[in-house]
Amino acid sequence: MADFPHAFKGRGAASNPEGRFESIRHHAEDDGWQHAVLDEERPRPRTEVTEEQARSVITRNDSPDLSFTQAMNPYRGCEHGCIYCFARPSHSYLNLSPGLDFETKLRAKSNLAEVLRAELAKPSYVVDPINIGSNTDPYQPIEKKWRITRAALEVLAECHHPCTIVTKNALVERDLDILAPMARERLVQVFVSVNSLDNHLAAKLEPRASAPHRRLKAIRALAEAGVPVGVLVAPIIPALNDRDMEAVLEQAADAGASCAGYTVLRLPYELKALFREWLELHAPQRAVHVMSLVQQLNGGRDYDSNFATRMRGQGVFAQLLRRRFDVTCRRHNFGRARELQLDTSRFVPPRKPSPQGELF
């Protein structure tokens, strides 16, 4: 029997529904005993990390609403547990649930640096900035132990290859010794995601990510080290965190961010039901209103995948958000999030391993 939805401390999802490719479905029935179990008696799901040997690590896209064409993700799944994460449905390809499995059953590409080096060494490779963290956060808590993101940065720095990073974890400060020299050669730009200043809300929306004030400190540390850093107010969830947009931009500007961007909530595939479930548990009085506004942003549906509108939404509320964002950015002299042009001319393909080492 499947578990009933329940808020687990330190986790975003409240259940573990089957992925969309599963042929068997479980349906929970309340026999009256379920509610007798005390919260402290419920086992908390633990994080499990499985080592994965990747065959390729650079993915490519031609989406017109993305500012990068190449991306790299050191991990599958994300321990941050953000309930709104659009990457949750990707766990279905592993026959795992987009719910609790996504944040507890993780895959670590332990050979990423080795495969990256081989891909960059191919004669056919065409250099273009690689985005690290387009799907799952490269600095999620398990990176502290696995250090796969750092290993990838070491390869990129060695080859003078440009990259961008998206994260909501202050662990990015650990790699300033690599990022600062890369920044001096215009090889890196970091974006820190901050969508609210409410610690109480953040603890439920993104339970294992760094607290908002800690991310702002990370922005300051990056800026002071000379690393170009921007802030992403993402995602904006109407009637839940949109009230903080101006304050986030103001504090990020004060911390040293030089550009800003935003996106609205996206609910593809299984994420629709997971987010509705979260609302009923954590914001029941606002659930109907939030989803009404979400649907207004998506042409009457929970989600519209149209490239022209999926990031910013459509309709009156979307226009209001855009106006508020533009006015605040002008006030703080922010550039657009994709403004910085990284240098691709410095790239030197990695040398193939030689039994004579680096004598020549």
Rank of each mutant, 00 (worst) to 15 (best):
F307P: 15
Y125G: 08
R60P: 09
V127A: 12
Y262N: 06
L171I: 05
P268T: 07
E270H: 03
L116M: 14
H200S: 14
Q341T: 14
K9D: 12
L106W: 05
H282F: 13
Q53R: 07
I237G: 01
K144E: 07
S305N: 12
T167S: 03
A239D: 15
R55L: 13
L232M: 05
P238N: 04
A209V: 09
R338T: 14
D198N: 13
E339P: 00
F334A: 15
D198G: 02
N195A: 09
I236Q: 01
S92A: 14
R338L: 06
R286I: 04
F360E: 12
P353M: 11
A108N: 11
A318H: 06
V155F: 02
R331H: 14
A28P: 14
P207W: 09
E277W: 12
P141K: 15
P123F: 04
R243M: 07
G335K: 13
A13D: 00
F317P: 02
G357E: 12
H161M: 08
R331C: 13
V229Y: 00
R312H: 15
M72N: 14
H91C: 10
E79A: 08
L222G: 01
V127H: 09
L281S: 11
E154Y: 03
R338W: 10
R310C: 10
L320F: 12
S193Y: 00
R331K: 10
H200N: 11
G133E: 00
D254A: 13
P64D: 05
L94T: 10
Q319F: 03
E277P: 04
R286D: 08
E339N: 02
E280G: 03
Q296N: 09
E339D: 10
A202P: 05
N333K: 04
A180D: 13
V166T: 03
P43M: 11
Y262M: 07
Q251N: 08
S354E: 15
Q251E: 09
A308H: 15
D304V: 06
A108I: 13
L38K: 15
K168H: 00
F86R: 05
L240P: 01
S305W: 08
D39A: 15
E206C: 08
V233M: 04
I178Y: 10
L340K: 09
